[in-house]
Amino acid sequence: MTERKPNLFERVGATTFDLFHNTFYAFGFFWNVLGETFRFRSRSRVSTQVLVMQILFTGVNALFIITLIAVSLGTVIIFYGNQITTLVSTNFVYTILITVITRELGPLLTAFIVMARSGVAIATEISSMVVTHEIEAYLAVGINPISYLVVPRFLGVTLSMVALNLYFNLSGLAASYLVAQFFHPIPANEYFGQLMTQLTPTAVASSVVKSLAFGFVISMVSTLNGFRAQQSTTEIPIIVIRAVGQGFALLIVVNILITLVFPR
């Protein structure tokens, strides 16, 4: 006897049900992670060691590529910005630098790099652990995989994102100053003084909040998708691709929302 093919209504209903189920599951997962995060300090030193290693891999090891991108971005902005500002206003280049590096592209580019490096690594690692029944082994010996695996990664990625974003800003703005010396020399105190004058607390707050939110998004999307693996290693690449796609999409959406929330 052949199985009956579901009709359109049944398929739409099933898809909607899956969507709701996944959303509620994700919220439950986030809630569980947040609860375990507050209990992180009381956990054993092993989790702290995982956190340290996560910051090392996500933050310290990504510092070079982040700096490189920041330097190139700062160079481009000061080069073209100077041509524009000769027509508009001498101080306008500082506004461009702060808007592009501090408020918008700094946090977003950093998040893309972290998602591409650490997000992928986390999703792969956790899905492999699920497939090889390591998660079941943790549960069998009474270790909560959320507190031992997810929370250090969540904290590590989020802290690394904030730190990397600060280094991105520092590198980009310093590189702009250095490049400017080649075609339009500016005294250091004048350049950084003007930057500090134009930099508003709102811009700094927006940047820090974005990096915190992006860290949260990257770690949650990566770990949640990692746990979706079932039993086959062939699922791992699919899960990783899905995690990266969801991660990038969510990062852009969150970036737009935060930009709209923080006034200029």
């Binding site: 340290v52 290693m53 910051i55 090392l56 933050g59 310290v60 510092l63 802290l159 730190a163």
Partner: peptide, 9 residues
């Protein structure tokens, strides 16, 4: 690792 990460943060 701890010292490097500490300095980084």
């Amino acid at each position: 690792a701890q010292q490097v990460v500490g300095f980084f943060i």
